[in-house]
Design a protein around this nucleic acid. Sequence first.
DNA 1: CAACTCCCTTAAAGCGCTTTAAGTGCTGGT
DNA 2: ACCAGCACTTAAAGCGCTTTAAGGGAGTTG
Lengths: 345, 345
Amino acid sequence: MDELESASPAGGGTGSVRPRLEDVAERVGLSTASVSLVLRGVPGPSERTRQRVLKAAAELGYRPDRTASALASRRSRLLGVMVDVHSPFHAELVEHLHTAAEEVGYDLVLSALTRTRDENTAVETLLAFRCEALILLGPVAPASALAALDRKAPVISVGRRIAGADLDVVRTADDDGVGQIVGHLVGLGHRAIAHVDGGKGVIATDRRRGYREAMRHHGLDERISVLRGDNTEAAGEQAGRQLLESGDLPTAVVAYNDQSAIGLVTAFRRAGIDVPGAVSVVGYDDDTLSRLGSFHLTTVSQNAEEQARQAVAAAVERLDRGRTAAREIVLAPTLVVRGTTAPPR
Amino acid sequence: MDELESASPAGGGTGSVRPRLEDVAERVGLSTASVSLVLRGVPGPSERTRQRVLKAAAELGYRPDRTASALASRRSRLLGVMVDVHSPFHAELVEHLHTAAEEVGYDLVLSALTRTRDENTAVETLLAFRCEALILLGPVAPASALAALDRKAPVISVGRRIAGADLDVVRTADDDGVGQIVGHLVGLGHRAIAHVDGGKGVIATDRRRGYREAMRHHGLDERISVLRGDNTEAAGEQAGRQLLESGDLPTAVVAYNDQSAIGLVTAFRRAGIDVPGAVSVVGYDDDTLSRLGSFHLTTVSQNAEEQARQAVAAAVERLDRGRTAAREIVLAPTLVVRGTTAPPR
DNA sequence: CAACTCCCTTAAAGCGCTTTAAGTGCTGGT
DNA sequence: ACCAGCACTTAAAGCGCTTTAAGGGAGTTG
């Protein structure tokens, strides 16, 4: 398993220059133009030329210089991805984006969101790299800002719906997902079902609405109860404590996401309340955390792979097929029933 | 909070060309050379010129084209980072690498390791981007391959010691870290301390050795017990079950990393064994998982921030200050006592 | 006032590639 | 013989920037 082994036989110290197109051309006695054509698989060169060039390139361990070709072709074949490095769900998306992009001949450049690096900075970096399209995972910037950005490069918002703005969106139907959760709980016999929301973002809003509508749909208008939260474990714990102190514990709690759900489970268990024996808890995202053995969380899968594939496809349509009309792709989420839901006590 | 708002007043559709150096030059009636000098902060241009250029650049919303400047200067000012997208610890490192790199005027390009993307591919991508140095997080490739790679671009191995090979390493003293853990446990009164290892990698080897040596140091040679594991939660759970079935439960278990430790905790708790009441469990890395409220794992911090800073510093020394001799920077790990360790029953 | 400095500014030559118009040498038809 | 047509091949002009040697103007000096 000799990884990192490179084709280059040279390896002559940091000083050794890497072979250029010209070196390959010289070796076969052709022009750089021909070599370029062959290497890019453009039709034209004869079979004989093709073979010789390929051979020479391999022997020299030639790797085209992306920088130069990007400059010359005015195409970077780069997709910029803005990602929250702390989100397990984003990690999953990135993984699938990588494979999807590779399949269509694009590369990814990741720009991480951190405590000191906001969406603005992250996106600027992407633009400076000349990314041809921007795939933003759960952006929080206002629609107007995203629309403005879209004028510089096609923007694909993943996971977040953009009200009215004229740009591509790939997401799952969050309200539907929460609807499925509520349906599942009602099916188990629950009626006192609370929701710990995710704050003020668009995604949180959709999920909250999904909860409300589903409750109403099941004739549980009276039982609607929304606690304030966010996307962290801490918020879940906090909400859990609040619920415990209120003395009026619901029989099931629907959290904004898996992290929040885990916080809830933790708070309950610490208080000696069995999950799902005494309270059922449901998350959202089906991320790595939810699969941890000690939680085994019932949750909703957003189908990261399909979303990634669609996002890349959307970018490619814009870039290579000249689509200009915005498209919104809404995927159906699927309920994943695991171990934190059971009939009410 | 209008994120993504760009300085560009233009925003004229995808078709609008972004301003070039020449446009700025034209606007102030100077040559591109002068503008370039000003924008890069090179001494020479007069104060007056400086001001005018800066103003014009701002007005046009000019952003230099990295691609072009990289090509022209033969310097990309890019550090390539190979990262396992699924490791919470890597996520943390990346965050700090970003800030550290930014401070010294470099940018990061991340290449993610995934199920279908091995170290080889990841590194090739980095090289194609013309990264000037490669920061590899916990590489598993053989030392010889890394050494070969180092001939193309300075390689900095983070977290993993490289036997003999002549390249930079930034890591913490893993054996010492585990030594501290064992010391802590012995101090609490434990004697039956088992270790669930991390498999065959170099890091795992060091930690295992650290465990053995520490046990011997405390006169516990007879109690040395190493179970096979890896870096996953599943391995921890598996080891936990094995321990339970053996009927000879130790009073404390030292896991290879936090994920594995969490598996152990899960297995124990599921079997009704209290942690830390009946068994103490310790992890390693101090990653996000270990801080989850429901685990609150005692662990060892590898000081991600300092490692990141040192890694970037090492790269900069090589690139900007011409250092050629390899350097190994070994940081001291620090024990983080949280809630999964207590005196033995 | 010519000769020298200093300071600033710029012309021009690339960086390693892509791209397209313009070859070049064939074959074959007339 | 001549030209059309075909199948390749290549010269040359950039892409947007950096870099360096050379240029120009104002101030000093003898």
